[in-house]
Design a protein around this nucleic acid. Structure first.
Lengths: 144, 144
DNA sequence: ACCCTTCATTTGCATATACAAATATAAATT
DNA sequence: AATTTATATTTGTATATGCAAATGAAGGGT
């Protein structure tokens, strides 16, 4: 393997960004949910498991910047999928009934997505890769 | 582990996007190159190893959309780091001397980046993860 | 030599995402 | 109680990135 391929294969920044683009495309194709990008669905899912979660906590769980959460919630609120309840300096987020429906639909698409990439990448490989990415993020975040 | 954590740990879309955000942040901090985002540096690197490469080929190697390559090259051309040579319907891209300098600097920062994440994640773990991401992208791209 | 098709690049538009500054509210200190 | 400090959210602005439509250039068939 020549130097160039070495660098392109070895650099985690590059391989991770490239893979993220590829899997995002697959996820978008699979979800096809109401014009909502996959990341919105993860926010919905997190709210569903933690009713009245604060934005800060959402940011932490999803590893997104606060401003990003504001924008996401703006959009979801406008579509009446979540509600904002201001409480002091915090804001609590909860799902509407419509949001719950979207979640249920998403939950099913998620299985389809799992199937699709497991078929392409192998079931065990996918599980390992996902686990490694999860751990790696945790470690990077620990060190700010 | 509860259902929510299962889903957040198991879904490759989510773990990959999250990790990409984290490692991008680390890369940006490390490179600190002239306002150029890391992805530009990978384009520069690829051109450096393939003088007079066409844009299409660049897109393929970097897994970016054609429009993205146009925009990247616009910026790099404006900064006199690469040149565009139109040849029929294709366009050939090459590095300028200044571009070569930026590459050399980048090449060194890359080692620093490798060091930084290897320290946090483990050397072998990083190598494996990167290799897996690389292979996984190849497989996803094979199936359009 | 002219049309039709094919393919590479560009342009218009949209969106996810971030950082830094601004705002709003609560908590702490005097 | 008033002022300062700390913290959560929002807003302004910027950028990477993509898709779909437009453009431009080549080559094949008539």
């Amino acid at each position: 393997m020549n130097e160039e391929n070495q660098l392109l294969t070895r650099c985690l920044y590059f391989t991770a960004s490239r893979f993220a683009r590829n899997i995002t495309k697959l996820a978008e194709e699979t979800f096809d949910a109401d014009d909502l990008a996959p990341s919105y669905l993860y926010l919905i899912m997190t709210v569903r498991f933690h009713p009245d979660i604060t934005q800060k906590e959402l940011c932490r769980k999803l590893s997104i910047a606060p401003s990003t959460s504001t924008r996401f919630i703006d959009k979801l609120e406008k579509r009446k999928l979540v509600t904002r309840t201001p409480g002091g300096k915090e804001t609590f987020i909860a799902l509407t009934d419509e949001g719950e429906k979207v979640y249920q639909h998403f939950r099913q698409s998620l299985e389809v997505l799992f199937e699709r990439y497991s078929e392409l990448l192998g079931r065990e490989f996918s599980r390992d890769l996902s686990k490694m990415l999860h751990e790696a993020s945790n470690k990077l975040e620990q060190n700010h």
